[in-house]
Design a protein around this nucleic acid. Structure first.
Lengths: 379, 379
DNA sequence: CGCACTAAGTTCAAGCATTGAACGAATGAG
DNA sequence: CTCATTCGTTCAATGCTTGAACTTAGTGCG
């Protein structure tokens, strides 16, 4: 590390600070200086290359009050964008996201890819991405998959066994000639509630269900990934040590009581929307199935909250759809079991992001990286 | 933040890097330069005030090989020291620790303080500290207590109700006229396995038992504290949703199956050493009690490991004493339940620190803070 | 004994990002 | 038209690391 490097680090750090302030909201140089604690001089200096490179634009001028009018800066409407993509058991989704946090376009297509080869899937994903990509510089692609990811490879995915082991990130990178970052859908869904806007505070768990149950834990505004990206395996938290056998080899895992497949089976339904209708109509079997799942989930979540010390739970994915009929049981188990030492209280909310949470998180991964490592913007 | 501040930050960061290298082992300026990536010039500059202030000493010279002999630098034998203190149900302990990581003196006295007032306890602690404090500058006191700590106050301590709510840190500070930092014993026991030397890798959970069960989770070389210092409440992880009632209001908490009180009761013993003797003698009742506790603990630990994605468990405190008879059952539950996706394997080890782990961690908290915030060394 | 060789540690001018104060620019109020 | 006010830019000063040159202090060999 040379001294020049040290100083460069300071500059990059300040650049990040400024960009973060701009993600929050646009502002003039003077305003940004006030918000970041830097001086006006530094702000002129830092924003100059951002304007020159088409990352920011200077708006005409704001005529308000006395003094010289300010010319607010904001992200350039033709500036770089990030792409998010999601591969899931029953659908594919793509989204483009600007640095300002606005969704540009999004697209979700049903698709049963359980029997497809990795090449077939990636071909379709690449096509979807090309279809929605605007004529603007591209920062890269975030790719979400339902399973454990390590080093750009899907290493474990009970529901997509055919994709396990392929270098998905590299293969998609080759197809598009773009940076591709592979990550787990649970982590990305959690990230979507955190970036570019905080939707559930600085600390929360995002829980969603397909066949498995994934939890993304957010602590201090960061997704907690654990040592090997394995963290948050809520599905295999034990709630009955001698309970039902689980595919993982253990017994009594939450997944065997609150997984979506279990809920549907117990309710005698085949698909989520049919279950939702039955609940709406007050079908007792459906209500009982969801209630039982909620209780089991609540026990598992209480354990998680006691270990991670997180106050908020966000129900996402299928759980968000079932939220209304699920949350009573979840909340009551949580209230009974989470240590209320001091002034703690647990809050339980449904995700506002709907079915696009994962793909938005995937795109957000890329815009976030660009803001945190501003040198990438000048490539 | 002025620019001067920025530059000062760079300097302090480099100072930290150098001190960390020295905690690892002594070395000449040239050696340190090589190890830290800084230049020899910077090292001369950085170490000059450390030598002037009696933090470091320059050793005579090492005559080895060709070239000008190097004069290794190490922490001054008369330099500042940290004090650790532990308040527990059945004993008090104190230890003094140098920046080099060497224990200077330690002392552990049995004491039943369950009925003592905070003032009585702190008087005794202050006396113990004065007894072992060497005639060297003092960096501060780390104070360990069995319970949840918030802002220098013990806010929850089922086993020491009389101390709850007193400003222990402030009261001890007043007695000694020293900085006092209060923390939870589980966190500090974990820290002791991490600082000043890594005894169990970069990522592990340290588990120990008294009446409750405390876990200190270490991720990436940092103690994970959670949002409000509550993290790692392994005792209230649920292993049987409809199991035994717990003081926390829930049911089936690990604590009710693997707590030390439960083990002793089931084994028909009153004290840990008596239990240990019975185990040695092969007493079936004792063996059964410990085996059952181990199984329950293993289930809870599997849940914790699936959530935190940590590969190693360190058994400390009473569990370390029982380790030989406990680990088989623990390990077998862990093996059965922890997701072995990919190449994961769980390892289970006994703490090498014995009964001084907590108090050593308490002192380590202070030396670590001094190294991480080197400006404190010049106060 | 002396000279070449090696490595440790020091000295010093150069380089760099931020700062703060001074300055120029653009508008509203009276 | 002039003053007050706020925005944005310019520029010398600051303080830290750097790298190269230099000094110091030994070893090895003839």
């Amino acid at each position: 590390m040379t001294t020049v490097d040290h100083l460069r680090q300071v500059r990059l750090g300040n650049l990040r600070t400024v960009l973060l302030a701009l993600v929050d909201r646009p502002g003039s140089r003077a305003d940004l200086a006030a918000r970041t604690g830097l001086t006006k001089a530094t702000l002129s200096n830092l924003t100059e290359p951002l304007l020159a490179n088409g990352i920011l634009v200077e708006e005409p001028a704001t005529l308000a009050g006395m003094g010289r009018p300010s010319k607010p800066l904001r992200f350039h409407p033709g500036g770089p964008v990030a792409v998010g993509a999601e591969i899931n058991v029953s659908h594919l989704a793509v989204e483009t996201l600007g640095l300002d946090g606005e969704t540009i376009r999004r697209h979700l297509v049903p698709a049963d890819i359980r029997d497809s080869t990795p090449d077939e899937v990636l071909d379709r994903v690449a096509e979807l991405i090309r279809d929605i990509t605007p004529a603007r510089p591209l920062l890269g692609v975030g790719l979400a998959v339902p399973g454990v990811v390590h080093d750009g490879v899907l290493v474990r995915a009970p529901n997509l066994p055919k994709l396990v082991g392929s270098p998905l990130a590299d293969d998609l990178r080759r197809r598009l000639d773009l940076d591709v970052e592979l990550d787990n859908e649970a982590n990305l869904a959690a990230l979507a509630h955190l970036w570019p806007r905080h939707l559930a505070g600085e600390d929360f768990v995002h829980v969603s269900a397909d066949v498995g149950i994934g939890a993304g834990v957010v602590i201090n505004g960061e997704v907690y990934r654990g040592v090997s990206g394995f963290a948050g395996e809520l599905g295999h938290v034990v709630i009955e040590r001698d309970g039902v056998r689980c595919t993982c080899g253990g017994r009594g895992c939450v997944e065997r009581y609150a997984g979506l497949d279990v809920i549907l089976r117990e309710a005698g339904r085949r698909r989520l929307d049919s279950l939702a209708k039955a609940l709406e109509a007050g079908d007792p079997k459906a209500l009982a199935a969801v209630g039982a799942a909620g209780a089991a989930l609540g026990v598992g979540l209480a354990t998680l909250m006691n270990l991670f010390d997180v106050p908020t739970v966000v129900l996402g994915g299928s759980y968000a759809v079932l939220h209304e009929h699920l949350s009573t049981a979840v909340q009551s188990e949580m209230d009974a079991r989470v240590l209320a030492g001091g002034e703690r209280h647990t809050s339980l909310v449904a995700s506002p992001l709907g079915e696009f949470a994962v793909v938005r998180g995937a795109a957000g991964l890329i815009t976030r990286r660009a803001v945190h490592q501003p040198e990438r913007l000048f490539a």
